[in-house]
């Protein structure tokens, strides 16, 4: 079986290498894509949408329908991971570890023991015991707000510089994952619960689709943002620019929430009890 797989891989790889020289050269102005499609975007993107970053204009406006389903793909990835991994049965069979905050003494409480829940002096820690590390906690506490601010900047500034909803959403999700890594999963749940993450991912997709449907209701095509001009009190060109921003916010929200919910499910094997 293994040799068969090897032969298949070698054959397909050889075919790929054989076919690659037929591609047009890198940056070839005479390639089919550069002859018909790209010149239109390069010449008309700024006057159509007032967005200097052509990539963003193509991604969220001209090809907005594609990006909508990309967001839907990310959303369904999060949902699929939830269905595969999430375990709803609450098992308290395992022993739990608690740390006394004032003295640093670790208590091990066996099954059926009295748990010091709700006490301010005891804090639950993961059973894969990690020593209290002040440097990691303080450093991540310093970094996380700036990472989040940078993520918001990437989303909001996608019109003018590289970036946009996907990148900004991933960076924002990474900030929350960093918080969950440096502290523990239960503390991250207090900031962004599982339910909130799932609702946010659905809301992000809904913002995108809702914008498209709103354009449809106002008499334009699906995702034709110039129809929003009257609602946003601008002209049709700026309305397309604002429409791109609204859609990017939806994408960012969905991607952020899906990344966080994927991490929650993967790191706790679906139990949402003890993470990394």
């Amino acid at each position: 079986m293994k040799t068969f797989a090897l032969i298949t891989v070698l054959l397909l790889g050889g075919l790929l290498f054989y076919g690659t020289p037929d591609f047009p050269d890198w940056g070839d102005p005479a390639s089919p894509a550069s002859l018909h499609v790209s010149p239109y975007y390069i010449e008309h993107a700024v006057e159509d949408t007032a967005v200097p970053n052509i990539v963003t204009a193509v991604l969220a406006d001209y090809r907005g329908y594609d990006t909508m389903f990309e967001t839907a793909v990310i959303f369904s990835a999060g949902i699929a991971c939830l269905f595969l991994l999430r375990v709803y049965r609450r098992k308290s069979a395992r022993t739990r570890l608690y740390r006394h905050n004032l003295t640093g003494v670790t208590l091990r409480i066996a099954k059926g023991g009295k748990l010091p829940e709700g006490s301010a002096e005891f804090e639950r820690i993961d059973s894969v015991w990690v020593p209290y590390d002040m440097i990691i906690k303080v450093t991540s506490r310093l970094i996380v707000p700036f990472v989040q601010l940078f993520a918001l900047y990437v989303i909001a500034h996608g019109h003018h510089s590289p970036g946009g909803g996907f990148q900004g959403g991933v960076i924002f999700g990474a900030a929350i994952i960093l918080y969950a890594l440096s502290n523990d999963l239960r503390r991250a749940f207090r900031r962004l619960s599982e339910k909130a993450a799932l609702l946010a991912s659905a809301a992000g997709v809904l913002i995108y689709v809702g914008t498209g449907l709103l354009c449809l209701l106002l008499g334009g095509n699906f995702l034709d943002y110039s129809m929003l001009a009257e609602m946003l009190h601008t002209d049709a060109i700026m309305a397309r620019s604002h429409g791109i921003l609204i859609v990017e916010i939806g994408v960012g929200l969905a991607v952020m929430a899906v990344m966080v919910s994927l991490y929650y499910n993967l790191s706790s094997a679906g139990r949402h009890d003890e993470g990394l």
Binding site: V55, P162, G163, Q167, V170, G173, A174
Partner: peptide, 15 residues
């Protein structure tokens, strides 16, 4: 392709 590079850095190398 700076936009793609940005995505690759945040998604592929990061998360």
């Amino acid at each position: 392709a700076v936009d793609v590079a940005f995505t690759e850095a945040s998604v592929g190398a990061g998360v």
